[in-house]
Design a binder for these strands. Structure first.
Lengths: 223, 223
DNA sequence: TACAGAAAAATTGGATTCAATATTCAATTC
DNA sequence: GAATTGAATATTGAATCCAATTTTTCTGTA
């Protein structure tokens, strides 16, 4: 177990990524190197290296001599990412279900209970991911899991947390409960279909909330 | 139409990526900043920024104060990447097939003819990708297409070109021909199944060649 | 000879400095 | 008065310089 590199660049990358994925730095935010350098108390060099790295991850876009901005996903892109997730996650579930055993169910149920109980929005994303990942874990597909996780985080960002949860929490809980039941019953076909619906409905909800938000912004802008 | 940024870092990224994906820089190659800087006639700063970017793309791995190496895919990882491709590309094909029209067929046939004719190995990868992409294009899934392309290139590298083509060219051509025919006939189910086999067989071939190569290297190393 | 430890060299990471490009804003022209 | 040019300012891109870390080499000892 190697205790990873602790370079300034690495820390800046982690910090910025966290702030972008959490929504603290919303899309289209201009990232000034000097400002970030002052904020973190370092020179501009590690800032720029971090920005290049985040650009490769798709989280920011850089234009030479102009600056870096937090990149945004169009609604179409967002929908497509969810569809990719649906395609890959159902596949993971189909592979893992025959291998799911009691410890997995118990872990998933514990995470589910936490999600129902913990009302703090900021914990929801991680719990939700851990819940899903637990069900996929026996498939033993590390590359796929890592890829899906990246898509998950990338799609979930940009939205102030309360917004993306409003009015969907109870629904999500019910769907997770059904998914768990179907997994326990070993009904692969229905579990997979349910998961697909779960993901695509999530996308629909998010997109409708996003559109409402944009309409609202346009209205206040006009007023 | 913006004439893109021409920064030193950007050019270095493109050059290194090209060399890695083409196999000119094989896996596990140590990338010395000073050496690369001298080679490209620039300072170490843009080299380092480029390495960070390529690390985020997964093409190199960096260890602090030790150096950067061209990252390698294990055989298991390689196989998994091919399976992801199979899962996503069949999906793309299923969506695009109902929308395929004559211009697409003609473009695909032209690319196919070029692949049959052009014996130069170094053109094969790009032609092959263009052929596949042509069939997926009507699906209008830019994110998925970009993702699959990345997986395609990433998996195909590391192998000296002649090695990965030896003994598979004729087979590939036959399979492409069948795929084209099935697409023209509009038989979605069979085309999709054939494409899946095509991709998975490609993986099997590549892996067996790779294992043979490693055995051979071990033998000569022992001798 | 084999090994441990310290000095030296090599290499990377980060700060500072300089150069190139973009933006801002005032002066000028129509 | 509006548009345009150009100087001043701000910001990024890259080179050089210094610090921190790792690797190698050398030396002394068992």
């Amino acid at each position: 177990m190697t205790l990873h590199r602790v370079t300034t660049t690495g820390r800046v990358v982690d910090l910025l990524r966290e702030q972008i994925l959490s929504g603290a730095l919303p899309e289209a935010t201009l990232l000034r190197q000097e400002k970030l350098a002052a904020e973190f108390g370092v020179s501009r060099v590690p800032i720029r290296e971090a920005l290049h790295q985040l650009e490769a991850e798709g989280l920011v876009t850089m234009q030479s001599h102009k600056g870096a901005v937090v990149s945004s996903l169009s609604i179409d892109d967002l929908e497509e990412v969810y569809e990719i997730r649906a395609r890959l996650e159902t596949w993971l579930l189909e592979q893992s279900m025959p291998l799911l055993s009691e410890p997995h169910f118990q872990k998933a149920e514990a995470l589910f209970a936490q999600m129902v109980e913990d009302r703090r929005d900021e914990n929801w994303s991680n719990l939700n991911w851990d819940f899903h990942a637990t069900l996929y874990e026996p498939a033993n597909r590390p590359q796929t899991l890592a890829l899906v996780r990246k898509l998950y985080l990338n799609a979930y960002r940009h939205f102030p947390l309360p917004i993306r949860l409003t009015g969907s929490r109870e629904k999500m809980n019910r769907e997770h409960q059904v998914l768990l039941d179907l997994c326990r019953q070993g009904d692969v076909a229905r579990a997979s279909a349910h998961l697909e619906q779960h993901i695509l409905m999530g996308a629909r909800h998010l997109i409708s909330r996003l559109k409402a938000l944009r309409r609202q912004e346009a209205d206040t802008g006009r007023a």
